[in-house]
Amino acid sequence: MTAFWILAPIMVAAALGILFVRKAVHAALLLAVVMISLAVLYAALDAPFLFAVQIIVYTGAILMLFLFVLMLVGVDASDSVVETIRGQRLLATVVGLLFGLVLVVGISQVTFGTVVGLDKANEGGNVPQLANLLFSKYVFAFETTSALLITAAIGAMVLAHRERLTPKEGQAAQAARRVREYADTGRHLGPLPPPGVFARHNAVDTPALLPDGTASEASVSRVLAARGTVRSAPAMADDIDEVQRQLGQGGAARPAVDEDEEGAQ
């Protein structure tokens, strides 16, 4: 029971954390905590096979799948805090608490009798005994799950498959389209500008400066911008002024540029 009393508060805290963290990645990590703790509890409950499966299948495979999807969807897709359905959060909390209360009260009213223990059932090892059950009594259910898994795999493939409705654009066509777009909308023909390279600071999270001294939004990754880790040009404005002052030249044009960038930010 020691393991239980240590792990139970951790699990409840982690589970509550899932409710409140804003970022999906954090939720996934908290879920991993709950699942690994569960695996330990399984071990404590004489279920070594499920202990392994819980870690390998749940924590390993399923959570990885979640993380992959998060990556595809974009880590910047965090929840907005504003509730769209009126009263949903309050009601959900009230009804959820009520449900939990009813369950706990109900359970506390039940007497569970003496615990038999699995010593006898696990005689000769937990895994062989489980296998005995799975391949005799539950063999049909077991075989059916294989059909279910195959169906799920094929279903996922079908869902993820995107039908190509137009022929693939070749290089010549791409070039022609870009030129046409340039003619129509004035969109830049060439590649996007690389991030800024400064004398004292050289990184991908720093926007490049255009010939007129303004920062180019297009030069840094959109993901970095979403994360808010981009070093913005205004942040460096002080530096620039400092450098200009050191150089002893009156940088008359600078402040105007800074104001522009502030507006953009």
């Binding site: 939990g100 369950l103 359970i107 569970f112």
Partner: peptide, 12 residues
């Protein structure tokens, strides 16, 4: 306690 923990996790 296990069952109660299970109920709490379910409710959460």
């Amino acid at each position: 306690p296990y069952i109660v923990l299970s109920a709490i996790l379910f409710t959460i």
